[in-house]
Computed example of a mutant assay.
Amino acid sequence: MKLILSTENTGTESQDQVIELAIIDADTAQTLFNQRFKPSVFIKDQAASMHGITLGALANLRTWADYHDHILEIIKSAESIMTYNSDFDFRLMRQTAEAFDRVWPQLVPSCRDLGAAYADIAQIEFSEYYGTWKWQKLEVACRQQGIDVSDLKTHNALDDCRATQRLYKKLQAAFDAYWKPFVKPQSTSTKYLEFKENIEEISQLFSQSVPINHIHQKLTQAGKITMSYTHFTKFFKDYTESYVFLTKPDLKPGPKSANDRENEFKANKHEIIVLLNKGYSKAQIHRMLKAEGKWSTSYANFTEVCRQHNLKKYHKFNR
């Protein structure tokens, strides 16, 4: 099953939390989950002005912790997950889970950023400065494609899911072709089912920094999988590719000021775009730059500065 999800949050920073989450079936638009949560932090004024959700309205609701297991059950059942801004949504979900002492999985089904894909597919406006096609707001993208969303509210998690689903269905052939390298095998595949049945153990071993070949060897010796190492690495890539956080984000303080962060970005911008073009995720690029001493700030700050400069996966230097 392909899923679409959307969130509304207390803000956009590293301590902010999800206060509304909706998940629907990408093919049928059936609502699978739609819930608001009471956060443990304040809702920032700017966020409240957009979605209109107040702490008072959430005061008597349960927290993320009460729904955590159910949310993961839905997510793990998916073949793939689409969001209109996957880096942001998945970062906020991880932050929220950890704020309530819940474990966010190291591996989740491939998550695809429909907003970034639409920018490359529609090619509405190209920025020579940033070297990429302009990211379009969801409501703008729907209007550009003649999709009626007059019955939907903006900045409402469920309605944003529905708008995203309408956009996906309108351009499904183009989106599926765009994501073709990351399309997972049919769920009836014996090898795929073997991998999925052992995903919890694979995730745990991976989080302990066990090499992939050792994970494959361990599961093979235990009689839990029969697939070759080649097939195993392919399934592993499918689960870890595109916008999935493989390690806990480093939330330690970064540079002393926004100017310091901006200077780091400018110094490494070309390398970041090259790596994005090669298919590396932002999480992978962040780890590489930190390992080389080229980046000192947290992963949350890294994704934020990329967002500010409209840098997403699959960039073009020239038109």
Rank of each mutant, 00 (worst) to 15 (best):
M1K: 12
E8V: 06
E8D: 03
T10W: 03
T12G: 06
S14C: 11
D16V: 11
E20L: 01
A22K: 01
I23T: 04
I24D: 06
T28N: 01
Q30Y: 12
N34K: 06
R36K: 10
K38N: 15
K38G: 01
P39L: 05
V41H: 09
F42P: 05
D45I: 08
A47W: 02
A48E: 05
A48S: 15
A59L: 11
A65T: 12
D69H: 15
I71G: 03
A78M: 04
T83D: 04
Y84P: 04
F88P: 09
F88T: 10
F90D: 05
L92C: 04
M93F: 01
Q95Y: 07
D101I: 02
W104V: 03
Q106D: 10
V108N: 06
V108A: 06
P109Q: 01
D113E: 01
A116P: 07
A117L: 02
A117D: 02
I121N: 06
Q123G: 03
E125D: 15
Y129E: 12
Q136R: 01
Q136D: 00
K137P: 00
K137Q: 01
C142K: 00
R143Y: 00
Q145Y: 00
I147K: 08
V149L: 02
V149N: 04
L152N: 13
L152V: 04
K153V: 07
D160R: 00
C161K: 04
R162K: 10
R166Y: 05
Y168D: 02
Y168A: 05
Y168T: 02
K170P: 09
K170D: 05
Q172M: 13
Q172N: 10
A174M: 04
A174W: 03
D176E: 11
A177M: 11
K180W: 11
K180I: 09
P185F: 03
S189C: 11
T190K: 15
T190A: 14
E197S: 00
N198D: 08
I202Y: 05
L205W: 09
F206A: 10
Q208R: 15
N213K: 11
H214N: 13
H214Q: 13
T220E: 12
A222C: 10
I225F: 04
T233S: 12
F236L: 14
D238H: 13
Y239S: 09
Y239N: 15
E241G: 07
Y243S: 12
L251E: 12
K252S: 12
P253K: 07
G254R: 02
K256G: 15
S257C: 08
N259R: 13
N259I: 14
R261W: 10
N263A: 14
N263D: 11
N263M: 14
F265Q: 07
F265D: 05
K266D: 08
A267K: 13
N268Q: 11
K269A: 14
H270Q: 12
E271I: 14
I273T: 05
I273H: 07
L276R: 09
K282P: 04
K282M: 08
I285G: 06
I285F: 06
H286Y: 07
H286L: 08
G293R: 03
W295D: 03
S296C: 07
S298T: 02
A300F: 10
F302E: 08
E304P: 02
V305G: 04
Q308Y: 11
Q308K: 15
Q308C: 11
L311V: 15
L311C: 13
K313V: 09
Y314I: 09
R319P: 01
